[in-house]
Amino acid sequence: MNPQTSAYLERRRQVLAEVRDILITRLKVERAPEHIDPDAFLFGTGLGLDSVDAVELVVALEQRLGLKLPEGARTLRSLRTVGTVIDQVLGVEEAP
């Protein structure tokens, strides 16, 4: 595999692990990490989070990864699924 691609996938896995950990330890999502699918919806019938939990998820991620997500990261579109949250993080890291 292209080393750039494999590095990207590895980083995606790392961020996914962080997101899963925050969901479980901070936001009381009572699931095993492997049962939190990257395509799981954060709100409603997905993981059952609400807007206040979403703030906690964003702030905790920023803290752990030492980065600042753009204002747009707090919108519902960016916080649709676990995967879209990871996209936000990787988007910031890739930016020059």
Binding site: R26, V52, E56, V59, Q63
Partner: peptide, 21 residues
């Protein structure tokens, strides 16, 4: 506990809104 821990870890200005509620 979570409220105090979030202040300890991230500072007062970034405390956990979820714990605050």
């Amino acid at each position: 506990t979570r409220f105090d821990a979030s202040i300890e870890e991230r500072g007062m200005a970034k405390l956990s809104a979820e714990a605050f509620t």
